[in-house]
């Protein structure tokens, strides 16, 4: 579904008519002494132009996407899912790579017991 010139024209015309309907409704309210209800032509014009706008904008908004329950999981791997920050432990072999690592200061707690 690509947006075509036709849909753009329909959209612009629809918006114009919608605005026109609104303006005439406002005018009527100002000029008429006892305002009771809108006249039929304004109501019909409003609804028809709204439908035209809706129709055109569906085509102009771009391609629709399928909604899938697993969409967000598609690109995840087990490596990120299994990683649980609340259960991190810090006494792993990676720490020996740190410049601040002091081999004499760690491991005592294990030896003491």
């Amino acid at each position: 579904m690509g947006s075509t010139g036709f849909h753009k024209v329909v959209f612009i015309i629809g918006i114009c008519f919608l605005v026109h309907a609104a303006v005439s409704a406002a005018q009527r309210k100002l000029t008429e002494q006892e305002f009771t209800s809108l006249s039929l032509d304004i109501v019909v014009q409003g609804i028809l132009s709204l439908i035209a706008c809706m129709y055109a904008i569906i085509y102009m908004a771009g391609d629709l996407k399928e909604i899938r329950a697993t969409e967000e999981l598609e690109n995840k791997s087990w490596e990120t899912l299994r990683n649980i920050p609340s259960y991190y432990i810090f006494s792993h072999r990676g720490r020996t790579l740190s410049p601040a690592y002091d081999p004499t200061s760690v491991g005592k707690s294990l030896i003491d017991e």
């Binding site: 920050p85 991190y88 810090f90 990676g94 720490r95 020996t96 790579l97 740190s98 410049p99 601040a100």
Partner: peptide
């Protein structure tokens, strides 16, 4: 801070 602890960068 958690990441730093994880690589033993206590500072």
């Amino acid at each position: 801070s958690i990441a730093a602890l994880d690589c033993n960068r206590i500072d």
